[in-house]
Amino acid sequence: MTNLLLLIPVALLLGAIGLGAFVWALRSGQFEDLEGAAMRILNDDDEKPS
């Protein structure tokens, strides 16, 4: 029972980190151009996206 008290918060925290990462990615516009992202990997030189 005691290990549950530790493990459940840990599980929830890990999930929350994942959710937070997704929300961050969405906010920073990484889902705005899905097709362009697929095409950009074909450009050789590593220009920093501005």
Binding site: D33, M39, N43, E47, P49
Partner: peptide, 22 residues
């Protein structure tokens, strides 16, 4: 994408150029 962004970034005044393909 590359041609447009390269050409625009070469312009002295341009600070950021981004093509959205979708």
């Amino acid at each position: 994408i590359k041609r447009i962004e390269t050409a625009l970034n070469a312009h002295p005044a341009v600070t950021a150029a981004r093509v959205n393909m979708s």
